[in-house]
Amino acid sequence: MRFLVEGWLSAPHSYTTVNQFQCLALLERSGLQLFHREQPLAHGWQPIAGQLDPERSRRLAQIPAPDGDPVDGLLRIDSPYRLEPDPIARRSFVFATAEFGKLHHEYWQWMGCAQKTSKWAAAGGDRGAVVLTPSAWSRQGLIHSGAAPDRVVVLPHGVDPQIYHPLATADRANLRRAWDWEGCQVLLNVGGTIPRKGGDLLILALGTVMERSPQLRWVLKANDAVYGRDRGRAAWVNQVRSLLPTDRAQRLLDRTIYLNKFLSYQDMAKLYQAADGYVSPYRAEGFNLPVLEAIGCGLPVICTQGGPTDEFTNPAFTLPIASQLIEKPVQYPDGVSETVWMWEPDCDALVDCLETWLDRPQWQTATRTAGPAWVQSRFTWDHAVDKLLSLVAQQP
């Protein structure tokens, strides 16, 4: 089988992570000839390197460019989306996500179709390519945006168990000792400075819970540095002080470790491996890969109920935050307004979940085996590639 990927291997974006690990899994398949064409970076981004170890990076760098001959399958994984099929491929696939229950106005602007009546058709979406998306929630959003239901397939993400796995007890203790986390209950969150990630709700909830839990620490891994911008700690501190009374705000600031620097996948895994829990009170996601990575490392997770994480979590290691699907009006700089859909977690329910997590140390211990076993049996990149190649093998 000849397979071509057109996408990002160096962009500061989650699509790069998906593409890197899928390509590495594809390289392991016998009888498959893989090609890759790097796509231009969007939005003035600068390329990044160092996410993977040198050997994996070398393997990706050695994937050949396409030779011009026909291929059995083509996968595009970049943005703006190019929905039209390519005649060089027997089957064409496009990776896309709809975090807000639809492709919002800015997506259509990037695709050059914002002024069109039938936007999906204008973008080439009715010409036969299959759209791959990582969750049923995202699939429904793409259908709402004009995609034909029989042309949108859910292809869940995965994790690499060689990177995302629990540490041995002694190794974990040594890591926590080195980071001065002994005797603490450490709660990790990734991306909480982005509004749709629900960081404001987490500030409010932790402001309450920390009053009775002096051992609780919050590790906030911000993503600003990865995307080449820095809203920075100062802006986050201002947000904390605007949301909480003075005493609660200072307590939370004193007990929070704010990280805003680039981390490799291996270093990111160490955060998961050393922490005691992961929390994600998100409002809008296409999948939410950090939740799955945390589960793979043995963490109990607290996350929004109703969204895409419902599709890969399990009560054995998950506390769901009761949430409500809401319509939210949005106004764009060009004057266009529209309604998007978001999950709004209940802040009191988030407080209850945090307190339950703190009060169940035996359950926390049990998740260290239950979560990784669940992930390794269902949600690795090998599972994702199995489904991808089965789709390529089907007749158009």
Rank of each mutant, 00 (worst) to 15 (best):
K221N: 11
T339Y: 11
A275W: 01
Q51D: 09
P47S: 09
A370M: 08
Q140S: 14
A205F: 05
R2K: 08
F379D: 02
V152I: 07
A61V: 11
V385I: 15
A123S: 06
I143T: 01
G198N: 01
G141D: 07
V154W: 07
L75D: 04
P315C: 07
L201H: 04
D160S: 12
G191P: 02
E182C: 13
A61Y: 05
Y15V: 02
A178P: 05
A225V: 11
A235P: 05
A148Q: 14
I295L: 13
E28P: 05
A274V: 06
T365Q: 15
P156N: 12
G192S: 14
G7Y: 00
W137I: 01
C184A: 15
V131E: 01
A89Q: 09
G277W: 05
L319H: 01
Q331C: 13
V153L: 10
A384D: 01
W179R: 15
N19K: 01
D276I: 07
A148L: 11
D150I: 03
A393N: 13
P64T: 10
A173R: 15
E99S: 07
V219P: 06
D276W: 07
Y258K: 10
F35S: 02
L201S: 04
R255Q: 15
G7L: 00
V385G: 08
L26Y: 04
M1C: 01
A384N: 12
P361E: 08
